[in-house]
Design a protein around this nucleic acid. Structure first.
Lengths: 205, 205
DNA sequence: AGTTTGAGTGTACGTTTGTACACCCAAACT
DNA sequence: AGTTTGGGTGTACAAACGTACACTCAAACT
């Protein structure tokens, strides 16, 4: 056996996380039983406790992991994929791509954001707030926003994040055929929001 | 006993619906057991079946009821409360009011929209689509939208509904002190969206 | 007055749940 | 080489689960 002790533990831990994501496709975390997860992983029920104190702790670990995916997405957007000239088209394309690549993570967040144990809900809400904050600093670097207050930037990025979360949820619950329409709508909506924000702001001069 | 047979049945049915809404504040529908509901109502577990075939059927009944609340809200917005001159301020005020008045219904929809049994999810999604459609016909009566296509109206109303759902969820998970900030943001965001939609549209002439 | 109906009861069952406790045994440490 | 550590096992149990079945008894119908 070429596998060290820590490696084996980490491998089982990953299996538990993956099993929870897989089983969660049908039901929410709150309806997920420790024994179901253990059976899916292939360990005995009590073995679960070697890795997590409770299902809730498992949920918190999944929140961390899922927001890792989101940060990676924002990094891609920030880098600005040269394959797309337009910021809007590029950002939506990256969003769509990440939703497919990390489908389980997006499903998890969409589900547990409003259902799920209170601590998990709080962690997700906090993560989204951080995400909005990061987006706000990105928006501040955009031309035309130099005079904006921090509050204005926060409100705008909250609107954008809300719209993008809505888009992600729409993609997740849409067939492949309906998806083209969803992304087309998302592009138009994001453009509307940006145009509106700039014009509304210039009115206040 | 001055109570007829049908009245008594309806009263128990209401008690079951209310119990499900009350118990749902903590956990999602999928995690709700028939026995918990029965105990909360004060009937024996098997008595539940006299009213619903399953927890899922209960959920579908709650979806109907909750969307009744939403339609009532839209009716109020349409009437245009004369206490508020501005459409935006008035609409947001009505939304905030209804979220407080029908808190349990909004919580239910927010929770079960992405968690909850597939049939319940589908029913909620369908209800929201109807809601967007109704809003679109209202928007069509607004000045400046005469040249809009049905598709454009649908996209705009989808954006507005998404933003309003986000606002409702923010209100539900905000303390009384944070609420003023939430509603202020919501007003600004709705104004941004409307300004953006009109300006973006006029660009295409 | 006699009969039917149906909301609610009570018992009973096999399953599944979370968790306690004693155990094993190979990797890691001394 | 000897000891410790800890991931995973196996058994065990009380509690809660969904649901089947036979019951009651007052309202509703004839």
């Amino acid at each position: 056996m070429t596998e060290t002790r820590g490696e084996r533990k980490e491998r089982t831990r990953r299996a538990i996380l993956d099993a929870a994501l897989a089983l969660g496709e049908d039901t929410s975390l709150a309806a997920l039983s420790l024994r179901q997860v253990a059976k899916e992983v292939g360990i005995v029920p009590t073995g679960f406790y070697r890795h997590f104190d409770s299902i809730e702790a498992l949920g918190l670990a999944l929140v961390d992991e899922a927001f890792g995916s989101l940060r990676a997405m924002l990094r891609d957007v920030r880098r600005g994929d040269p394959a797309f000239g337009d910021i809007v088209d590029g950002s939506i394309a990256i969003l769509v791509d990440h939703v497919h690549q990390q489908r389980a993570h997006f499903l998890f967040i969409a589900r547990e954001r409003n259902a799920g144990p209170p601590a998990v809900r709080a962690a997700i809400r906090h993560g989204i707030e951080l995400f909005e904050h990061e987006l706000a600093t990105d928006l501040a670097r955009l031309p035309g926003t130099t005079t904006w207050s921090a509050e204005d930037l926060r409100i705008l990025s909250n609107l954008i994040v809300t719209a993008m979360v809505g888009t992600a949820e729409a993609i997740l619950s849409a067939g492949p055929k309906a998806e083209a329409q969803v992304t087309a709508s998302a592009r138009r909506q994001l453009r509307m929001v940006l145009v509106g924000a700039l014009n509304w702001q210039s009115d206040r001069a």
